[in-house]
Write a protein that binds this DNA or RNA. Structure first.
Length: 477
DNA sequence: TTTTGAGTTGTTCGA
DNA sequence: GTCGAACAACTCAAA
């Protein structure tokens, strides 16, 4: 039996249940279908497309090493493309690993039925989550909305399945479908702006494994404290690799277990902050699955009436890292340049957008969606709703980040700000996170002219905080 | 059914 | 400078 293996967000050969099952049954035709219109309101943004281009190239190389190749197609309709590929190749089965975006779930359900009606076997698998979103439930069978009990229940189900081995060999079909060039997917921008991405990342399986190994060796031990320091590079940076499935969470889980056992953490590696972060990824998918409206609508309905402002100039200043708050600007510039932002700084910049500027969280979510290489509908939605206070397990209304204190606390030497906001690099650390409070002589010595070489603060944080508290008070039913 | 305890990531104020 | 309390009320999960 020849099987079409439909790659989606599982761009790897190892721990890939769809591929393994197909390879056991006979020849396989690996395909990737680029159909952005099927992602509804959330087609991949520019940074994600760049990553996807690189990752598909790496996947094709890996498949060729295994005696196979990746067949690409572009279109509007996955079903039509799959039926056409089946006709061309004589394949009698289609298999894939599941995606969990609401739009995709609905389409996949229809598609699977249609494939079966067309006489093709159609099966799907789980490659991207430790547990299916419906496996974890409260005692009454409903969805969980608080992280800690969710994760406790998830762990109580036992360790997730071990990762699957790579298929030993991939038999080629009697004839390959007509080739489509990767360039025809037009994933790369017409204007060359991807230098910063290229310098920061190595997309693909090999880069993912290297990243994981480096992280476990160097940063796993002090992770629970150092992960909050954007100046230290102590996070795993696995998010884009996980998003595209170049490595699976089961593999990360097992590698962490092996590392933990080898380093004397026989009991407590499961409770480690790093494993808990995998738990947050699971929780994000759980929430997206059970509350499919949340990419657009606040989970807490009363927030639909929040008096957000409209201020295109302020939004643009935030997007470009020109708010006048150094830690905020550093984060947004890191994002713009590398397609990624440190998690602590994501919280700071998000809090600034929604609480200091009173701009809608959706505007921030959209910007992140366009600029992140790890843009993931589940995680992005959870993060922004958390920051805005309208999501599950949301921050209490009075938790408003002070960008000066956050900067001092988590970038104490100022290395992070100096790197991303070089026009402030000569300022003494004392004033780095609040340049407007430095004396004229200090500013002059550092070559800083507020309002000229670096913006004055867009808003006064203390006043903005009061305004946010007042706005939140209007929500009381 | 009712009750109870708890809830990723913070800041400010006053003693 | 340090420390603890207050900051709303709500929702969820489990007993």
């Amino acid at each position: 039996m020849t099987t079409i293996v439909w790659f989606r967000q599982d761009l790897r050969l190892t721990d890939n249940p769809a591929l393994l099952a197909a390879a056991a049954a006979g020849p396989v035709i690996p395909v990737y279908l680029y159909t952005p219109s099927e992602d509804g309101a959330w087609p991949p943004g520019g940074a994600s497309r760049w990553w996807l281009h690189q990752s598909l190239q790496r996947l094709d190389e890996d498949l060729r090493t295994a005696g196979s190749r990746l067949c690409l197609r572009v279109g509007q309709d996955s079903l039509a493309l799959l039926l056409e590929l089946a006709r061309e190749s004589g394949a009698t089965a289609v298999t894939w690993n599941r995606r969990y975006e609401p739009e995709r779930i609905a389409r996949d359900r229809v598609l699977k039925q249609a494939l079966k009606e067309a006489g093709l076997a159609a099966t799907s698998h789980n490659a991207s989550l430790l547990r299916e979103p419906w496996e974890v439930a409260s005692q009454t069978g409903g969805p969980m909305q608080v992280f800690t009990p969710f994760w406790r229940r998830s762990l109580a189900l036992g360790d997730p399945a071990e990762p699957l081995p790579q298929a030993r060999s991939l038999a080629a079909p009697s004839g390959w479908p007509a080739p489509t060039a990767l360039e025809d997917l037009e994933l790369l921008p017409r204007i060359e702006w991807t230098r910063g991405l290229q310098d920061a990342w190595q997309p693909g399986r090999r880069g993912a494994l290297k990243q994981l190994e480096t992280f476990l060796q160097n940063s796993f031990e002090g992770y629970s404290e150092q992960r909050n320091r954007p100046d230290l590079g102590a996070t795993s940076r696995l998010s884009p690799h996980l998003h595209f499935g170049e490595i699976g969470p089961r593999e990360v889980y097992q590698a962490t277990r092996l590392h933990g056992l080898a380093h004397g953490h026989a009991q407590d590696w499961r409770q480690s902050q790093f494993i808990t972060e995998l738990g947050w990824r699971e929780f994000a998918y759980h929430l997206l699955y059970h509350f499919p409206q949340t990419p657009e609508q606040p989970l807490r309905a009363k927030y639909a009436g929040f008096p957000w402002k409209t201020d295109a100039a302020a939004l643009r200043a935030w997007q470009r890292g020109l708010t006048g708050y150094p830690i905020v600007d550093a984060g947004l510039r890191e994002l713009w340049t590398t397609g990624w932002m440190h998690n602590r700084v994501r919280m700071i910049t998000a809090s600034f957008l929604v609480k200091d500027l009173l701009l809608p969280w959706n505007a921030g979510a959209s910007w992140f969606w366009d600029t992140l290489v790890d843009a993931d509908l589940a995680s992005n939605t959870l993060g922004w709703q958390w920051a805005a206070g309208c999501g599950a397990d949301a921050a209490p209304y009075f938790r408003i980040f002070n960008p000066i204190l956050q900067g001092r606390k988590f970038d104490p030497e100022g290395h992070y700000v100096r790197h991303w906001v070089p026009e402030l690099a000569q300022l003494p650390t004392e004033w780095l996170h609040e340049p407007w409070n430095a004396s004229p002589a200090t500013l002059q010595n550092a070559g800083v002219q507020l309002g000229a070489t670096y913006p004055r603060p867009l808003v006064d944080h203390d006043a903005a905080r009061q305004e946010a508290l007042a706005a939140l008070a209007t929500l009381k039913d």
